[in-house]
Design a protein around this nucleic acid. Structure first.
Lengths: 232, 232
DNA sequence: ATATTTTTTGACTATATGGTCAAGTATTGT
DNA sequence: ACAATACTTGACCATATAGTCAAAAAATAT
């Protein structure tokens, strides 16, 4: 895929007076329009898929949230399924990128600690993505199955081997690596997927910065101690 | 609601030859037919809602899974939403019943240990219910919000106070009770909600009895050690 | 036996929604 | 300036589906 500029660049947020300012480079504008609209639509779609599920998400609602007419959404994404695919792929990419925080060059304590932190931050910053992912898996991973069997399996095996090495070296207590990973995944994602429940039990208030910090600390403390490491 | 007999009794599993066997008591049969069909429909609905989501679940599919014509489903449950409500209420009841396994009369080790065991067993025996619950919360708890603010909040507060007492008595390490509960909920439910992912990472094989046992053991080990208790 | 109530079921309807299209507008290339 | 390309959008259509209904069958009561 060719990329002329970052999707994050959003030059349309400026208001250009006609003919009073120099035109942008051609290639830039050409791509910008597409990628700009696609980004807006993808963001809206992620939210709507998360809150209504695939079947409950209507292209009309996605269009409304994106602030575009429905036909325009279909201009950029042929079908609702294609749009959904793109959303799911983006989430998977984000997650795999975060997975690199599990850096086995560091010791178990640092590696696990940083991985948990990263996952918690992702739960906070990408709650919609997390929910879409959860729903995708719960429905049998119709779209992402190949990736599960490929990249995710490889990553899990690799990290599992490092964990087993640490255990053999006496750097942490013996535990089945798979269950440790599941525990980390589930706990961190819970703060996104069940954010509504947590908010309700928090007196209807969303977590403050301090509460997020405390949550991260609590989760890290239990898990690290749980595998025989000493949290700071 | 009047109940003449348990829903679990299923006398239709026998094949009665016409006029060769004595008829069942009238009151029994009258209710039996209703509750029997309702039970079948509710079970089918739970599965379909879990696998397709509320919007994706069609009454036709629910009827097919239940082995009945669609109109018959609507005879027992006026609307799809009513059927969904009943499914969600049943799940909540099951969960609150399991919540009593968190018996604070026992010490922290036994209480937590049994609660985790019970939740793990529930994840294994009621995976569909768990998924429906997860989706309900992820979509903002449109149906179950009142129960979250009532029963679940009360239960959590109560158990939280007991945990704090244990901590004060030096029976376990200091930890915010809310995060401990979330960690237990998320981890145990993960084995239901993300069962598909776990199965994929398990070489496409569902967990055997031994694997479930090992999973329970691993989860209990990490959590108990994580709060300063010594697992067996 | 007969009346009454409950259950069954195919056929039907109203509506919502994914997707199309063609006509128009804006942008870009020469 | 002009042609070509890319984007926009209201109107439209085919289909799927929640829910209805009436007529019949079965079960139950008297």
């Amino acid at each position: 895929m060719v990329k002329y500029c970052s999707d994050l660049t959003n030059r349309s947020s400026f208001i250009w007076k006609k003919h009073t300012l120099p035109p942008e480079p051609i290639a830039f504008r050409k791509i910008s329009k597409r990628s700009q609209n696609q980004t807006v639509i993808l963001k809206a779609a992620e939210k709507v898929f998360a809150e209504a599920g695939f079947a409950g998400a209507t292209t009309q609602l996605i269009a409304d949230v994106a602030g575009l007419p429905k036909a325009n959404v279909h201009y950029y994404f042929k079908t609702k399924e294609e749009l959904y695919r793109r959303v799911v792929y983006n989430i998977f990419d984000t997650w795999m990128e975060a997975a690199s925080a599990f850096d086995t060059a560091l010791g178990p304590k640092e590696a696990l600690s940083r991985y948990i932190d990263t996952k918690m931050e992702l739960a906070r910053s990408h709650p919609y993505g997390s929910k879409v992912w959860a729903a995708e898996i719960m429905h049998g991973a119709p779209i992402i199955q190949d990736y599960l069997e490929g990249q995710l399996l490889d990553w899990s095996k690799d990290r599992g081997q490092h964990i087993e090495r640490w255990i053999k070296n006496g750097e942490m207590d013996p535990i089945d690596p798979a269950h440790l990973l599941y525990l980390i995944w589930s706990t961190t994602q819970h703060y996104a997927d069940f954010g509504h429940q947590i908010e309700t039990l928090n007196g209807g208030q969303p977590y403050s910065d301090a509460q997020w910090k405390a949550a991260k600390r609590s989760v890290k403390t239990i898990i690290l101690k749980g595998v025989g490491l000493t949290p700071d």
